[in-house]
Amino acid sequence: MPDNGLMPAALRWLPVWRRNLRVWFKLAGPALVGNFGEPLLYLLALGYGLGSLVGVVGELPYLVFLASGIICSSALFTASFEGMYSAYTRMAVQNTWEAMLATPLEVGDIVLGELIWGASKSLISAAAILLVAAALGAVDGWRALWALPAIFAASLCFTGMALVIAGLAKNYDFFLYYHTLFVTPSLLLGGVFFPLDGLPPTVRAVAEWLPLTHTVAIVRPLMTGTALSDVAIHLLVLAFYGGLAYALATVLIGRRLRG
């Protein structure tokens, strides 16, 4: 620790992140049941049910195709929920951030801590899905583990975007806009349930702008052992959205907390 008794600036997000982790541990039981149970149900019902109609997508059995998409959409959902509802609760209802701002932490530290926390929570859920998918034989070898850092990076971006919405929100109902206008279209058009090749060009063009599309484009090849291409472009898109969202969220939340 430096002489002035302050934490180094690069580590000030850590106590914010640890606070959320400690709260998560208290409720880890139901959280983990959800993390394992939900994807298991989806994969079983859709993977086998729908899969019996679809057969294969490209050279992949539908269950395998679906598992590599659901791990991404679940990261989007987990990160969005954490960045909107949970973060908003800490900001506007429990005044947790206000309390933090009486200590040697800055708004940027809090936003960064929340960002990394949202991504960490998504990582936990992604790890659970990966285990379930592996148990169902929907994973192609150890290379699939590389999906986890990719999911973490994408979830930084997803949480950041949700934090922007939290920074703008006046109440919980506001989040429905984001759900309807962004999260649901991402789920449907991001390549989770079906490949984008068959979509009309205009719809396809919209899909190309969605961060989830780029997440699936990295994660699916890693999990299924198919060819990976344009990784740098996909990561750049995610970094662009994520960086912009972090900066914007810090400004918006700063404006709310510091008059």
């Binding site: 002035n4 008794g5 302050l6 429990q94 005044n95 947790t96 206000e98 309390a99 009486a102 200590t103 040697p104 932490l105 800055e106």
Partner: peptide, 15 residues
């Protein structure tokens, strides 16, 4: 930040 290392705050509404 340096200052807040040395002050305590009791807010109007408990947080």
């Amino acid at each position: 930040l340096k200052l807040r290392r040395h002050i305590g705050v009791v807010p109007q509404q408990d947080n």
